[in-house]
C-alpha cells in the first residue's frame, strides 16, 4: 500500500487541478472489474502455505492481462498492459521477480534483505547472476517510500494514474469555446 496510496492521492489531486471531479470517475465503465480483484485474490494465495504458488502467480498475470485487453480502449490501460507484459516476462523467465540488492539497500530497506533471502515468497527473490532480464526486475529504489520497484511497475502505476486523471474528466473552460464565425468577418485581412 506504500505505493498505491500516494500514487492514487497524487492522481486525484492532479485530476482536481485539471478541473475534474471524483464523481465523474464513477461513470467510468471498466469491463470485468472483478478480474482485477480475482488477480489479487490469487496472489494472496501465494503466502506461505499456499499451494502451487508459481501457477497461481502466472494465472494471476494472465487474468490481469485479460482485464487490461478487455479495457484497452480506456485511456491509460495500454500503459498498464505494457507494465503487465514487462513484469510477467521477467517473472516467468526467472520463476519470480528478481530484486536487486542495491535497490533494496538504496531504498532504505537493508534490514529486510535477510527476509527477502529467507522468505521472499513466490513472487520475489534476491537477484543473482543466474537471473535473466535483470534490468526488468525490481531495480529502481524509491527511498521516500522505502520501495524497490521495476520498470513494469512504473508503467503500471503510471497507467493507473493516467486512467484516474482522465476518468475524472475536465471542466470545459468558456474561454476556449470559439465564437461563431460571422460571414461578414471573412476576407478583410488581405485588404
Amino acid at each position: 500500500m506504500k505505493l498505491v496510496l500516494p500514487s492514487f492521492l497524487l492522481a486525484v489531486a492532479i485530476g482536481y487541478a485539471r478541473g475534474g471531479r471524483l464523481a465523474t470517475l464513477g461513470q467510468l465503465r471498466l469491463r470485468w472489474q472483478g478480474l482485477a480483484i480475482a488477480g489479487l485474490a490469487l496472489q494472496i494465495l501465494l503466502w506461505p502455505g499456499g499451494m502451487w504458488p508459481l501457477i497461481y502467480l502466472y494465472a494471476s498475470f494472465v487474468i490481469l492481462a485479460v482485464f487490461a485487453i478487455a479495457n484497452i480502449r480506456t485511456t491509460g490501460v495500454s500503459l498498464i498492459l505494457i507494465g503487465i507484459a514487462l513484469n510477467f516476462a521477467v517473472i516467468a523467465l526467472n520463476q519470480g521477480m528478481p530484486v536487486s540488492r542495491a535497490a533494496v539497500v538504496n531504498s532504505g530497506q537493508a534490514s529486510s534483505l535477510q527476509d527477502l533471502v529467507d522468505d521472499g515468497g513466490a513472487k520475489h527473490h534476491l537477484a543473482s547472476s543466474e537471473d535473466r532480464l535483470r534490468f526488468l526486475g525490481d531495480v529502481i529504489a524509491i527511498r521516500p517510500l522505502e520501495q524497490a520497484v521495476s520498470l513494469g511497475d512504473v508503467f503500471t502505476y503510471g497507467g493507473v494514474m493516467v486512467l484516474i486523471v482522465a476518468g475524472m474528466g475536465r471542466r470545459a473552460r468558456a474561454s476556449t469555446v470559439s465564437p461563431p464565425t460571422l460571414v461578414g468577418d471573412t476576407g478583410h485581412a488581405d485588404g
Binding site: 464513477g26 480483484i37 489479487l40 503487465i84 476518468g167
Partner: peptide, 30 residues
Amino acid sequence: MSIRSLRRVAFALAALAALALSVGAGWRPN
C-alpha cells in the same frame, strides 16, 4: 455526491488498487 455515485467511485478505485497491487507491488509489498 450520491451514495450510488460514491459506490461506483469506490468500486472503480478498488479494482484499480487491486490491479496495481497485483501487477507490481515492488519489494516489499506492505
